[in-house]
C-alpha cells in the first residue's frame, strides 16, 4: 500500500480511473485494519455479526468519505479523518440496531398519547409557588407554540422528551444528521432568545421546579 500526503489522497480520490481505484482500494485496506480495533470495544470479534458489521461500515464509510471530500479541512492526517468518519458510522449503526431491537414499538405507541402528568400537584409546594409554576409553564407552552415550526417542535420532542437517538429522528423526519443539527440549533436559539425576552432562562425554569 502506498503512503500519500493529504493532498495526494484528495487528488487521487477526486480523479477518475486507475488512480482513484487504487486510492479507494488503499482506503478500504486502511479501514479494514483500523475499524476492528474500534468495534471490538463494543462487540466481540467472535460475534457472528462482527465481520458483517465491519464490511457494512466500510462500505458506508467509503461512500460518505467520497461525498464529503470537500469538507476535509486538512487539520489532521487524511487517514485520521477517515477513521473518525468510520467510527461514527459504526457507533450509529450499533445504537440504531439496539434501539430498533428494543424500544421502538413501545415509543411509537406512546408518542401520540403522552401520559398526562402534572408537576403542579403533589409537590408539597405552597399555593404561591404553585401559581408561579403554573404561570411559568403556561408561558413556556405559548413560547413553544409561537416560536417553533411544527418540524422543529417534533424534532425537539423526539430527542429531548422521548430520548430517541439522532439517527432515528433523522430517519423519521426524512432528513440527515447534519440538517437535523442545523434545525435544532435554530430552534434552540429561537427559544432561548424568546425566553430571555420573557425574562426567563432555561436554568431558572429548571431551578424553579427542582426546589420545594
Amino acid at each position: 500500500m502506498s503512503t500519500r500526503t493529504n493532498q495526494e489522497w484528495l487528488q487521487a480520490l477526486k480523479s477518475q480511473g486507475l488512480a482513484r481505484d487504487a486510492a479507494l482500494e488503499d482506503l478500504r485496506a486502511i479501514l479494514a485494519k483500523g475499524l476492528p480495533y474500534a468495534l471490538s470495544r463494543w462487540i466481540s470479534p467472535a460475534d457472528p455479526q462482527f465481520e458483517f458489521l465491519v464490511e457494512e461500515v466500510i462500505q458506508e464509510a467509503l461512500l460518505r468519505i467520497l461525498e464529503r471530500l470537500d469538507s476535509f479541512q486538512g487539520r489532521s492526517q487524511f487517514t485520521t479523518w477517515v477513521h473518525k468518519i468510520a467510527i461514527r458510522i459504526a457507533l450509529s449503526e450499533l445504537r440504531r440496531k439496539r434501539w430498533r431491537d428494543s424500544s421502538l414499538d413501545e415509543l411509537v405507541d406512546n408518542e401520540e398519547t403522552p401520559v398526562p402528568e402534572s408537576l403542579l400537584e403533589d409537590s408539597g409546594a405552597g399555593p404561591e409557588i404553585s401559581l408561579e409554576r403554573a404561570d411559568m409553564l403556561q408561558r413556556i407552552r405559548r413560547v413553544i407554540t409561537e416560536e417553533l415550526t411544527e418540524r422543529q417542535r417534533q424534532a425537539l420532542i423526539y430527542l429531548g422528551v422521548q430520548g430517541i437517538p439522532i439517527e432515528e429522528v433523522a430517519r423519521r423526519l426524512n432528513t440527515n444528521r447534519n440538517a437535523l443539527y442545523k434545525l435544532l440549533h435554530d430552534a434552540r436559539v429561537r427559544l432561548k432568545h424568546r425566553l430571555a425576552r420573557e425574562g426567563l432562562s432555561a436554568q431558572e425554569i429548571l431551578t424553579a421546579f427542582e426546589t420545594g
Binding site: 398526562p116 402528568e117 403542579l120 420532542i157 429531548g160 422528551v161 432555561a202 425554569i205 429548571l206 421546579f209
Partner: peptide, 12 residues
Amino acid sequence: LSDSSLLDLIRF
C-alpha cells in the same frame, strides 16, 4: 405536552 415533557424539553 405534559408538564414534565415541557421541562424535559427545556432541559434538553
